[in-house]
Every structure is written in structure tokens, then in C-alpha cells.
């Protein structure tokens, strides 16, 4: 099977709608098909991967922890819109330090999150075969 480039575009925050957790579920299921997968976070979607989410008070599953497992699923390209972060007074240091172990580099831990400008994101999006929006 030829590998295609799949991008999951996440534009909503974690708990107000079901989009964020549904997106993550689809990403994990699709990981079994061993395609070239990337995730993009823009608009309020950047809040999905901010550090320090605590859900005890709202009785919902804290699926922010699951993003730390993505590296094990060979999903290690998480692009975050610089402009969306800045509009919200956020920076890369507010995001979870998500990493993966690079099989081709003696399993060295490397960051999965990459903050990109809209222009960079534009170029990345135009390379995709499939783009799924949540």
C-alpha cells in the first residue's frame, strides 16, 4: 500500500465540543495503517496541548495525557500555529513537552511539537494528500 500524507487539522479546544477527543481517537485508530501522519493545531485548537490540564473538577477524561503516547504510535509531527498561540498570549513554553524516540538516531528523545508560522503551515498543508478537519 502506498503511503499517503494525512493531516489532522484541530481548531477547537478540548472540552467544549466533542471534536478534540474524536480527532485523537481517529488519529490513534488510523495509526495502525502506518501512513505519514501529522497533526496541526490552530485557533483554539492550540489549547488541546497546553500544559497543566486538570479535569477532576468537570468529571471528564483528561485525554491531554494521551498526547504523550503519540510518539509510541510513530506520530511525531505536531505543528502549532505561531499566530494562534500569540493571539491567545501563549508561547511554546506553555505547551506540553511532547517527545518521541527517534528509531534512526539511537532512540534519542526529540521534540514532536513544532511551532510554525501560517506561511510555513500553508506549505505543509499543500503537501498533504488528505486533510481531515476537527
Amino acid at each position: 500500500m502506498a503511503t499517503k500524507k494525512f493531516m489532522y487539522l484541530n481548531r477547537r479546544s478540548s472540552f467544549g465540543t466533542v471534536y478534540a477527543i474524536e480527532s485523537l481517537e481517529v488519529v490513534l485508530i488510523a495509526a495502525a495503517f502506518e501512513q505519514d501522519v501529522s497533526l496541526a493545531f490552530m485557533d483554539d485548537g492550540v489549547y488541546q496541548i497546553v500544559e497543566g490540564q486538570e479535569t477532576d473538577g468537570i468529571g471528564m477524561k483528561n485525554f491531554s495525557k494521551t498526547f504523550h503516547a503519540l510518539g509510541d504510535y510513530d506520530i511525531n509531527k505536531l505543528y502549532v500555529s505561531k499566530e494562534s498561540l500569540e493571539e491567545r498570549g501563549l508561547s511554546e513554553s506553555d505547551l506540553m513537552p511532547l517527545v518521541y524516540e527517534d528509531e534512526d538516531d539511537d532512540w534519542e528523545e526529540k521534540p514532536s511539537v513544532k511551532v510554525v508560522t501560517n506561511d510555513e503551515l500553508k506549505a505543509i498543508m499543500s503537501e498533504q494528500d488528505v486533510c481531515l478537519s476537527f
Binding site: 495502525a32 477524561k61 485525554f63 494521551t66 509510541d72 504510535y73
Partner: peptide
């Protein structure tokens, strides 16, 4: 407990 998901078999095997 750590990741809030049950791992896929290949992930479990690797881990």
C-alpha cells in the same frame, strides 16, 4: 494510568 488509553498491540510489544 499514564496515558489514559489501552495501548495498541504493537505499542505494547515495543514498550
Amino acid at each position: 494510568e499514564e496515558y489514559q488509553i489501552a495501548p495498541a498491540v504493537r505499542v505494547l510489544t515495543k514498550a
